[in-house]
Amino acid sequence: MRIDGTFSFNANREKVWDVLLDPEALKACIPGCQSMTLTGENTYVITLTVGIAQFKGTYDGNVSIQDAHRPDQYEIHVDGKGRPGWVRGVGKIRLVDAANGTTTVEVEGDATIGGPVFSIGSRFVPPAAKLLMGQFFNAMKKRVEGSAS
């Protein structure tokens, strides 16, 4: 499943980069993040309670940041499972200079999803994934722009 998106931040790339990869910011902005513990360099164990409306599930998994080149691009690898199913995915994130000192963040995600929730409710999954990604970056945007002022 492809999950792509473009988000604009009113800050320069270095500033955006530092917030996007800040463990505290990640914890605060990942939708439904219950806990997030550093287990190695750029590697976290994470517990999420996430979903849409009342369709929520708890997932345990690993998140790692790889191939990071500040302030240009990085990859975020996710691997999680819970009662409703499992997810594995890679997001390639590029930070691009935009007009007036702003930054455009381009996301190219590729996720594999499975388990009972997908088998029964596959129609909800792609829009839900897109929604959650939007929530994440909008929360990040607030954080970046809030701290910029």
Partner: peptide, 21 residues
Amino acid sequence: AKILAGGQSLIPALKLRLTQP
């Protein structure tokens, strides 16, 4: 807590444990 009215969407979701209010 979750409101139960006619249950036409909620009951299947409950039975599948997709929602666990």
